[in-house]
Each structure stands twice: as C-alpha cells, then as structure tokens.
C-alpha cells in the first residue's frame, strides 16, 4: 500500500495538524519509509491468534461510587489559555 500526499493531508486533517503542501511532500517521504518498515508484518500468518491489548490477562477493577473530588476550578483554570466566568473560551462552535 503506497501512501499519497492526499492521504497525508487527510490524516493531518483528522489529527487537526496544519500542513502546508511542501510539508506534506516532505512528510510523505518519511512516512512512506516508516510504512515500508511496518509492511514487514504482512508476511506473518496470524490466523486465529488472539490480539493482545494488554501485557497481562487481567480484568478491570471497579471503583466504589463515591464522590471524592472537590472544586479545583481556580487552580485548573490558572493555566488555561482563555476563560470567562468559569467557562473555557473557544472560537464559536457551529452546529
């Protein structure tokens, strides 16, 4: 599977990273090299092998339903780029 500039741009858009046309070209070269490396996997027959998401076969621990958090808005919003009346401000969300 070979990658195209259009693929790079589509990924960049999905990932919300601005890329110029020049960047896309340069990125394409590097990503193609990485994909070539990844392609080695295709030579392995993995039929019937259970995928491994975690290194140990454990199950999820459950938390008791208790409110443990207190209001920390002030401390959290001290590092926010833009806030007003306790709200995080962003350019208008269009629906």
């Amino acid at each position: 599977m070979s990658l195209t500039t259009a693929d790079v741009k589509r990924m960049a858009h999905l990932a919300r990273i601005e890329v110029s046309d020049d960047d896309a070209e340069a990125t394409l070269k590097k990503l193609s090299g990485i994909l070539k490396l990844i392609e080695q996997m295709q030579s392995v027959d993995t039929t019937g092998i259970q995928p491994m998401s975690h290194s140990q076969d454990l199950v999820q621990r459950l938390r008791e339903d208790v409110v443990t958090e207190t209001n920390q808005r002030e401390s959290f919003q001290a590092i926010a780029p833009a806030v007003e009346d306790g709200l995080y401000l962003v350019p208008k969300v269009i629906e």
Binding site: M41, T46, Q50, P51
Partner: peptide, 12 residues
C-alpha cells in the same frame, strides 16, 4: 491490516 495484525504479532 495494521492495528489488529500488530496486536496479534504482539502475542507471538
């Protein structure tokens, strides 16, 4: 082709 396959080989 990629993610699932990689998880399978991870087990190997």
């Amino acid at each position: 082709a990629y993610y699932l396959k990689a998880q399978q080989i991870r087990r190997l």
